[in-house]
Simulated scan of single mutants.
Amino acid sequence: MEPVLSLNHLTKLYRNGRGVRNISFSVQRGQIVGLLGPNGSGKTTIMKAITGLVTPTEGTISLFGENALHREAALKKVGSLIEQPALFENLSARDHLRMAARYYSDLKKDRIDQVLELVGLFPYRNERCGRFSLGMKQRMGLALALLSQPELLILDEPTNALDIEATVEIRTIIMRLAQEQNVTFLVASHLASEIEKMCSHVLVLYNGEMLSFDTKEEALRLNPSMEDFFLAKVRDKKGSVVL
């Protein structure tokens, strides 16, 4: 089966020397793949390279069998929320989605309200986003990413700034879409517990390097938690460095 997403030796280096090096992995339809690593490990850089926001230094990226450099065709089935959503303070939640809907010719008329209901913002649909809390703004970003009914969703810290109840709700949405609609997810987080609860696969990143790519079951086979798995991989990496 052809993977939804495939990276082959992706490298993106910035002028300060930071970035990612030699990243290779594939994602199959319906999987929820977690990018796990501390801040600055390269999670966002990988996501920006996939969505065309930065140009790789080396390597290739394919989406649904197409070269991701062919932006329009390759990204048509992709939704994304990378870093903080860019919102206009004077526009309502519904107005944001109406504006975004102009880019899609085949959306059903009820899709906007459907998405607002899905992320828990329907009661606030006519409220200006400038009055939203950080968590509500994060939900708004997820709504924008979901609007076109993408087959692949790329989410950077989707539960950032959410309270416990909202975090569970967003996690449930992601898992339900993967299980019931076969939507594929690439989710970045620095929280091992979130990756453990949500994802089917985990890719460990540290200082711009990929330390492992495993199923959740394999990661937890010899480790009591995803946190322990991550720390074990980092210790192995540090122990392999010859001083």
Score class of each variant (00 low, 15 high):
residue 81 L to F: 09
residue 193 S to I: 04
residue 27 V to E: 11
residue 125 R to W: 12
residue 194 E to A: 00
residue 166 A to I: 01
residue 81 L to Y: 10
residue 35 L to E: 14
residue 92 S to W: 04
residue 54 V to H: 05
residue 197 K to C: 12
residue 185 F to C: 00
residue 36 L to R: 06
residue 132 F to V: 06
residue 98 R to M: 10
residue 235 R to A: 11
residue 119 V to N: 02
residue 186 L to N: 10
residue 78 V to D: 08
residue 171 R to D: 08
residue 229 F to D: 01
residue 105 S to A: 14
residue 48 K to C: 04
residue 157 E to V: 03
residue 193 S to D: 13
residue 174 I to V: 14
residue 230 F to N: 03
residue 98 R to V: 00
residue 118 L to C: 09
residue 115 V to L: 01
residue 198 M to D: 08
residue 49 A to E: 02
residue 154 I to F: 08
residue 171 R to P: 10
residue 216 K to S: 09
residue 117 E to C: 11
residue 88 F to L: 15
residue 79 G to M: 02
residue 230 F to Y: 15
residue 39 N to W: 15
residue 192 A to T: 04
residue 190 H to L: 05
residue 152 L to S: 07
residue 156 D to K: 00
residue 61 I to Q: 02
residue 162 L to Y: 05
residue 165 E to T: 07
residue 1 M to H: 08
residue 5 L to E: 10
residue 13 L to T: 11
residue 81 L to E: 13
residue 112 I to G: 06
residue 157 E to R: 02
residue 91 L to D: 10
residue 46 I to D: 12
residue 35 L to D: 12
residue 207 N to S: 12
residue 177 L to V: 02
residue 242 V to M: 12
residue 232 A to R: 15
residue 237 K to V: 04
residue 156 D to V: 02
residue 52 G to D: 05
residue 13 L to M: 04
residue 91 L to I: 05
residue 51 T to I: 07
residue 189 S to M: 07
residue 158 P to L: 00
residue 158 P to F: 04
residue 88 F to N: 06
residue 168 V to L: 06
residue 26 S to L: 01
residue 136 M to D: 05
residue 187 V to M: 00
residue 229 F to H: 14
residue 214 D to S: 12
residue 18 R to P: 00
residue 37 G to Q: 07
residue 163 D to Y: 11
residue 179 Q to N: 11
residue 26 S to C: 06
residue 149 Q to V: 02
residue 207 N to E: 12
residue 89 E to I: 04
residue 153 L to Y: 13
residue 79 G to D: 07
residue 167 T to M: 11
residue 135 G to Q: 05
residue 174 I to W: 04
residue 163 D to N: 00
residue 65 G to T: 02
residue 84 Q to T: 13
residue 96 H to V: 06
residue 60 T to Y: 05
residue 120 G to P: 08
residue 223 N to F: 01
residue 214 D to E: 14
residue 16 N to K: 05
residue 12 K to M: 09
residue 195 I to T: 06
residue 133 S to F: 15
residue 4 V to Q: 03
residue 131 R to F: 13
residue 176 R to P: 04
residue 186 L to E: 08
residue 105 S to C: 03
residue 216 K to I: 08
residue 64 F to I: 09
residue 184 T to W: 04
residue 203 L to K: 12
residue 214 D to Q: 13
residue 178 A to S: 10
residue 114 Q to F: 15
residue 153 L to Q: 10
residue 151 E to S: 06
residue 66 E to W: 05
residue 15 R to Q: 13
residue 240 S to R: 06
residue 217 E to S: 13
residue 9 H to G: 12
residue 109 K to E: 14
residue 169 E to Y: 15
residue 87 L to N: 11
residue 144 L to W: 09
residue 168 V to Y: 07
residue 167 T to P: 11
residue 220 L to R: 12
residue 38 P to K: 01
residue 221 R to P: 05
residue 173 I to N: 02
residue 79 G to P: 01
residue 136 M to L: 07
